[in-house]
Each structure stands twice: as C-alpha cells, then as structure tokens.
Design a protein around this nucleic acid. Structure first.
Lengths: 252, 252
DNA sequence: TCATCTTTGTGCACGCGTTCACAAAGACAT
DNA sequence: ATGTCTTTGTGAACGCGTGCACAAAGATGA
C-alpha cells in the first residue's frame, strides 16, 4: 500500500490497535458492497475473503469493537456497517480543505471517494493569484492569504497538502496554527508538527521505489535460478564486474 | 502515511527487512538534498533528523546494507546515495505504464517525481476511444486494446492502475497476463493476483478515514478532560444516549 | 606512541501484531 | 429437551520491528 505508515508512537487509542484501525475502512467498503446487494448476514470467512485478510485477524479486529456477531450465523451486515462507521467517526460531517491546486490537487478535488464517506471539500486554496476565483470541481479556488479565515469559518480540522515540496512545511505550520489537527500530506517532505497533530503521508515516488526493489530482487533470483538450473559452474563472470549478481553500474 | 501497507507475508527479501526497505527511499531523498548542497559526510544523528526517524533505527537499517560508515566521522554522502540507489534498483531504467487516464491518471502522468528516479512513463492507456491519440503530459494516450502489445514492446514490468473500481481487476488480470509483476493500485478495490506479483495500494479515502478516527478520538478526549476538570459528577447524561461518550447518532 | 573523543555497529529486551487452535455459544432439527 | 453442527471470540505462542545502551573502531591531537 501506499506510504500510509504511521508516525504516532503506536499509542493504542481507546484500546483499538492502530493496525486494526487501518483495516476498518477496508471492512467497511466490503460491507457496504454487501449491503447494496441486500445481503443480510456474512461470516467472518466470507468477509475476510472480500477484504483480502485472514479470517482470524478479522474476528480479532471486530472483538476490539465489541461482540457484534452471532455464533453459528455470522455478522449482521447493516449493524456492522453502522458500528464501524460510528467507530471511525463517519456518522458526522468532516469539512476538509485542499491546499495546492495543481494537477494533483485538482484531481483530489474531483475525486468522488471523498464525498462518499462524510468528507466534504469545504475549500480549495492556492498561492497563485491567477487561480483565485477559478472554479475547480465546481468550487472556486481561494487565495492562501485567506487560509486562516477559511479554516476558522468552516471549522476545518482536516487539511490536505498537495503543494510542491518547498511550500509544504510553511503551509503545514499555518494550517496547524489555524487549528487543523490532522494532515494528509502528498508533498515529498517530512513534515514536523507539534504533539497532538496527526500526519499521514502519501508518496507516489516512494511506493514505486519499493516496487522497484522487489522487482529487482525478482529479476536477480530468476537469473540465479536460471544459472543454477542450467550450468552452475558456468556462472563465473560473464564480462560484468567482480561481483556477479550486482549490476555493473559504477558510481562517479 | 498512505495506505502503502504491505501485502506480502513479510518475507525478508535478501535479508533486508521490509520495514527497512520502506525507509530507504526516505533516506535517499534526504541524502540527495545533502548531496546537492555538497555536504561531504553526515552523521546518523543528523541524517535521522532529516528523515524523521530514530538514529538507532537508521544505523540498524544501514547495517543491513553493509558497513558503509566511518566511526567518529559518519557516512559519506555520495557513496551512500549510490549504495541505496543500487539496492533499490534505481540505477536502472524502469518503464512504467499508467492505465486509466482520468483526473488522477493525468495527474500521475504529469507528476515530476516519477521521472526523477529512474522511472519513465512508457505509455498511457485508457479504455475511452475518444481519448486515443490525445496527448497527456506530452504522451499520446493509447487504447486498452493494445495493452498487451505495449507491455511487451516496452518491456514493462511495473503498472499503475488509476481506473474506476470496477475496471481495476480486469485491467490487473490483463497486465499480469502480459508480464507485469509489480502493480501500484489507486483504485478502491482489493486486487487478487497470483504469487510472485507484488501489489501496493494507495487509497485516499482510507487515509482520510484513519485521520477521522483519530480526530474523533481527540475530540472525545478533549470533551472528557473538559468535563472531568470542571465537574466530574455533572457528567450524567446530558440528553444524549444511554452511552455517554458515544455520539448519539442512531442508525436506520 | 598514547590518550581522548566522537560516532558507528549491534546485543538485548520489550511490545505490537499475527496466526493457530479450540472452547463456548447459539441455531436448528428431531 | 437434547444433540448436532456451524461459527464466533479469545488464550497462547511466535516473530518482526523498535529503541536502549554500550563496546569497538577510528579520527585527532599531544
């Protein structure tokens, strides 16, 4: 998955482990799909398959929320949808601001997945005066100068940063000073924030690099297996470097 | 961080722990910045601060790669940049295809972070015939019909899925059948793939839901602390539900 | 050459998360 | 009522990841 990793010291919030919290949205999505198909109940086995996790893990996750299942039957879909929604805080409305309306910011503004679960794009903010007033996804872009006022008037506590790397920390500081306590950061920067503020980061470049690592490993193993299968002894040094299984690319 | 979570059974690849691999890009970014400022060496303490991690963790991470530091001095920046790049497989070129050129797909195509680290957008693919031939980020969009040919001719092993949820699994299947072995999935779906194929997912909606959970918890604790500080006994049941610290929103 | 000082590399202990395996609970049929 | 069968909820063991704390290594100066 995406870099969604956690900064917080794994403090168990209200008894629910962080790892479980991260899976609840997954369960919720699967349950919503079942609900739309009017499926009344579901077993841990079925639901786990739909969410792509181990069934024991799912049961343990649910056990942190309470005993919502019926032995011999399974879980009531509608009831579980409600319980998880409530636990995640999705029964209320969360106004969100997006700062930095470039390619990515605009795409986020247009992203339907926000509105679907209680998240409402309250405002779009950009530092470019030329953008001011221009509507994106039906919402007029406002200038950074008014950031504090916008946060305050809309009671915003969640901010999304989609600015270039250089602008991210200053924007973050202003958001926090204005009262934002949760930040979703798309800029390739490590943000520093005071205690009590949550930051999650999504970094496309990092995700690709992790994939590249595994991809390289796969290629290497394959080559090794190939060599081992055909002629193990022949694998001396076919014109590369002294180190056989390392690409012969040298640094400066 | 973003949903970047890992699917693989935490199989330690080549002795390097998965958690370490996920941090290497972070170190690399910090080191690149130092390199551009022509800083020759850096201590684990300084670098750790720049990357936002514990210094002991950083040293242990580097120890998996080998002994690249000098005691009493620190690490050679240039050398470390090269070693990490090589370990991550960034010394070679990775052609990537993006499937689904909507808002998000277009934003990804325009994203500069791809090109910067050995990743090259080899092709953009969309199912809409009206999009075919239209250039996005300077690259003409091609039709899904040619997917297999494109993968094959460009030697693509990494695919990015930015389609609507419904199209994701079919597209994934075709990518895998055509030879792609690493997938970065932006669609809100659980993809099932055969063994040997890596999937990482980035889910904006999930990230927001996790933030909402903590945000709700913070609000609840604050209210509780408030109540406890002023009048603990007064906190009987101020017209909500039988369960005091749960929002009195009822399901259908 | 020797002493001092800095910084790495790592042994060790701890805690979270995962998984297995099973007892308890309930549905359902007789 | 009683028995059988399904499925939950959880105790317990295991493994990975983290962070402390320190010994070893090397630089630097006298």
């Amino acid at each position: 998955m995406a870099t969604g990793r956690t900064h917080r010291p794994a403090t168990r919030s209200r008894g629910i482990p962080e790892a479980t919290v991260a899976r609840l949205p997954l369960y919720l999505r699967a349950l919503t799909a079942l609900s739309e198909r009017s499926v009344p109940t579901v077993s841990s086995e079925e639901l786990a398959a739909a969410a792509g996790v181990n069934s024991a893990k799912l049961r343990k996750d649910f056990s942190y929320l309470g005993s919502y299942g019926t032995r011999g039957v399974g879980y009531d879909v509608e009831y579980l949808v409600y319980q998880i929604s409530r636990e995640l805080g999705l029964t209320q409305d969360w106004p969100v601001v997006i700062v930095g309306i470039g390619n990515l910011g605009a795409a986020l503004a247009n992203y339907g997945g926000f509105a679907s679960r209680g998240f409402r794009v309250a405002a779009l903010i950009d530092a470019d005066p030329a953008m001011a007033g221009k509507p994106v996804a039906g919402i007029p872009v406002q200038h950074t100068d008014d950031l504090e006022k916008i946060i305050d008037e809309n009671g915003v506590s969640i901010g999304v940063i989609a600015t270039p790397a250089g602008a991210a920390q200053p924007v973050c500081d202003r958001l926090v000073a204005a009262g934002v306590t949760s930040i979703l950061n798309f800029a390739p920067t490590v943000l520093s924030v005071p205690d009590g503020v949550d930051v999650r980061k999504v970094d496309l470049s990092i995700e690709l690099q992790i994939l590249a690592f595994h991809e390289q490993r796969k290629a290497g193993e394959e080559a090794e297996a190939q060599a081992g299968a055909t002629a193990p002894a022949e694998r001396e040094n076919n014109g590369k470097g002294p180190d056989g299984d390392v690409p012969a690319v040298m640094p400066a």
